[in-house]
Simulated assay, not measured.
Amino acid sequence: MDKTAGEYHFTRLETVVFGAGKVESLGRELSRRGSNRALIVTGKTLGRSKLLDKVKSAAGSALAGVFTGAEQHVPSHTVNELVAEARRVGADSMVSFGGGSPIDTVKNAAWQLMGGRAGSRTIDFSAGAAESGRGGDILHIAIPTTLSAGEFTPGGGVTNESTKVKGGVADPRLQAKVVILDPALTIETPAWLWASTGMRALDHAVEGSYSTRHQLVTDTLATKAIELLNAHLLPSLQMHGDDELEHRMRCQLAAWLSIFGMSNTRGGISHALGHQIGPMWNVPHGVTSCITLPHVMRFMAEVAADRFGPIAQGFDLRFDPRSPRSSAVECADRIAKFIGKFEVPTRLRDVGVPREEISRIAGTVLEEVKRANTVGVEVTLEQLVGILDAAY
């Protein structure tokens, strides 16, 4: 037998509170950490929602203000605006409310407030395990309303508005200390957004499983995440009342499990593609996973079929480690079929990407793939363009 050895690095996440109505715990979590100047950070849509009133009420006397300028793909100007607002109100903590955009906006703003330089061109989330040594933490409490799961990582993306290239920041101190999963706050999330970010969670689980850095802990949680999403994502959009909330709660837990080990396993080709497709052509990251994941899985089935065992188990598919390729291909086909059950785009042409432009991002994607080093073989520019052509 092969010898088992490895390392697992935990993030600085301290508490996950989950359940319908648990937003009420926000004030308690702020108080126990000594915060009395909390700035809520969200986008324009939730900024007009009555759901925001629940979050403001839960913050209680600690509420110092509300910032509603978070935008999709985190353009750099929104980070600068949040930094200025946090300083203006004297914020000692920030509460992100919404999807990945407000969550990553907070992380990037916190990075600047801690003395970090803005505008990183690259996404290298390996830095999430290495502290930079600058100033102290900025308390971040995350209340997500989608399944993208960025609240569980110490890294966040930001887009250079002039180049439309997405870079990011990563540092252990950027991890949210508290995550509150309240399915009652997700009921206004559009069906396409809920479904597509569910596919983003699926993407986390899949790419963690076939990463060269996978291990028993991450495999086990990825399998359970896939199982939960397969069982609960569609019903969460079909049911009503308490049943709907319970299915949504199970999906939120699946999102947590899907990304639990990503700071250890890191992302793969599908994530790298999504990081650049999104800002270049204004495609939501959940949607990019709907488009790229099956094609990347077919590529990975040719180079790392032996790592598909946890994925097959999550979908209750037979996996023969002596002849894994057919099972790996079946996993890719099963995920494509699963995505097809939802009203989400599945091709680049469906989201308005010009055919003649798809190779523009290949170079930047290749840089990220090489830095992550999760595939296990050398990936070429031509192969990436081939995956993009297949996704078109």
Rank of each mutant, 00 (worst) to 15 (best):
I361S: 02
S162I: 00
G100Q: 09
E24A: 15
G278Y: 05
T159W: 00
G208W: 12
Q72M: 14
G278W: 07
L30V: 07
L82V: 01
A195Y: 06
T265S: 15
S49T: 04
V385T: 12
G100L: 07
D104Q: 07
H275Y: 15
N80F: 00
E29R: 06
V353D: 01
G47M: 02
S35P: 03
G274A: 11
T189A: 09
V379S: 11
V169M: 02
A336R: 12
R28M: 08
R173D: 02
E7T: 14
L221C: 12
A254T: 12
T146W: 02
E151I: 07
R37T: 02
S148R: 08
T42D: 04
F18I: 05
V303F: 05
H247S: 14
I143A: 07
C290Q: 00
V296D: 09
N160E: 02
N108Q: 10
H275Q: 15
R88K: 13
F125T: 15
I143H: 04
A62W: 02
I226K: 03
E71T: 03
H232K: 10
K177T: 10
H214E: 11
N373S: 14
Q252G: 08
P354D: 10
D171T: 03
Q215P: 00
R87Q: 13
A118E: 04
I103D: 15
T68Q: 08
K337C: 02
K44T: 11
S96A: 14
R117H: 03
T159A: 01
G43D: 14
V283L: 02
G198A: 05
E7W: 07
S25I: 00
R117V: 10
N108A: 13
L348S: 05
S76Q: 12
G128P: 08
R88V: 00
G43H: 03
L229D: 08
T212C: 09
V74S: 03
W256H: 13
T212M: 14
P183Q: 05
T189N: 03
G115Q: 04
I259R: 11
W194V: 06
G60F: 06
A201S: 15
D243C: 01
E131A: 15
V55S: 08
E343I: 02
R298S: 05
K370D: 15
D306I: 06
R307S: 12
A332S: 11
G90F: 02
D243R: 13
G60V: 11
M297Q: 11
